[in-house]
């Protein structure tokens, strides 16, 4: 399949934006400049970039504790995201909820969820709403292989298939449920094998190949949009860093990580762009420099933003208390 140069460059830029944002956040955390937990998706960027490139702005997503990439790919503002990581008032949750909680209705981010499997039924509900409202919006639920053992996976696929809803279940199978290898939590490690039992199609794709993810996602998203119902799309990928920043990772061998780093989705697309004469080294370097500047600006915005106040602690709990 041939793709517009803009599409391919867009995939590249999105992946770089995610990678550099997360590496920057990891450095800030290590330097004690950020409070709380941080879960990065470094190595998995092709999944977020490929799937979200297949979505329209009004399409919706739910994501996870490892959701920075999905939010960035769906159009979240880097400054507001970074401000949330810093715990500042200009953050997506006014600096009250942290890295795992991003909602931006303007670009279809319903929420990122710190509960494994928590976003799946919500995505089904949003898809149900979209159909009842007569719109064309498709909802994507991002989750990891760890969520497959949760009851909400089973319940959500059951309902979505039964009602033929416009929802796509995107499982990023990164081989680890938190700190446990897939062999410890799943008998059949091919997540998409489960789909037919629920009455929906399942597909697997190389989750480190942004173009392949984009192609697969485009097909299943358009199928959902056209009324063809849900799909379970499994992206086979790998998490380069720990479950959380600071995770000593005693549960896996360095060689395994190094082997997967050889399959870097960004380097892969970069090589393809240059080989196909879609871009030069210089073009891509310039693009990366622009993104680094955006991230630097996001950090500056966050750090110069005010901290939340005692009033913010109490506001937005109910509609009556919403400021």
């Amino acid at each position: 399949m041939r793709h517009a140069r803009e599409t391919l460059l867009g995939l590249y830029a999105t992946m770089v934006r995610i990678r550099e944002f997360e590496l920057c956040a990891a450095r800030l955390l290590a330097a004690n400049r950020l409070p709380g937990f941080l879960h990065t998706s470094v190595g998995q960027e092709a999944c977020a970039a490929g799937v979200c490139a297949a979505l329209r702005r009004e399409d919706r997503i739910t994501t996870t504790h490892r959701g920075h990439g999905h939010c960035i790919a769906k159009g979240a503002d880097l400054g507001r995201m970074m401000a949330e990581l810093f715990g500042r008032r200009t953050g997506y949750a006014k600096g009250r909820a942290g890295s795992m909680h991003v909602s931006d209705p303007d670009c279809g981010i319903l929420n990122a969820n710190a509960i494994v499997g928590g976003g799946l039924p919500m995505a089904v509900g949003a898809a149900y709403a979209a159909r009842l409202q007569g719109g064309e919006a498709v909802t994507v639920a991002f989750f990891g292989d760890g969520a497959v053992a949760e009851g909400t996976f089973h319940e959500s696929l059951t309902m979505a298939a039964l009602w033929a809803l416009p929802v796509v279940f995107v499982c990023e199978n990164n081989l680890y449920a938190e700190m446990s290898h897939i062999s410890l939590h799943m008998k059949d490690p091919d997540v998409h094998h489960r789909a037919p039992a629920y009455g929906l199609p399942g597909r697997a794709v190389d989750g480190n190949d942004a173009v392949a993810v984009y192609e697969a996602a485009s097909a299943v998203v358009e199928r959902a949009r056209a009324g063809g119902g849900p799909t379970l799309l499994e992206c086979k990928t790998y998490r380069w860093r720990g479950h959380f920043e600071g995770d000593p990772q005693r549960y896996r061998a360095r060689e395994e990580v190094a082997e997967w780093m050889e399959r870097d989705p960004i380097r892969r697309l970069r090589a393809a762009l240059i080989d196909g004469a879609a871009a030069t080294e210089g073009d891509l370097d310039r693009r990366r420099q622009e993104i680094l500047a955006q991230i630097e600006a996001a950090v500056a915005f966050a750090e110069s933003s005010p901290e939340p106040t005692a009033e913010d602690l109490l506001s937005d709990v109910t509609a009556a208390g919403t400021s």
Binding site: R60, T62, L110, N111, G118, L120, P121, M122, A123, V124, G125, A126, A127, Y128, A129, A130, L132, Q133, A137, T139, G151, T152, H154, E155, S156, T158, M159, L162
Partner: peptide, 18 residues
């Protein structure tokens, strides 16, 4: 179906979507 988490979760998502 008989799936309380799913029923309530679908309601949450539907409410978020209008």
């Amino acid at each position: 179906p008989i799936c309380e988490a799913g029923i309530v979760g679908v309601a949450v998502g539907a409410a978020m979507a209008g």
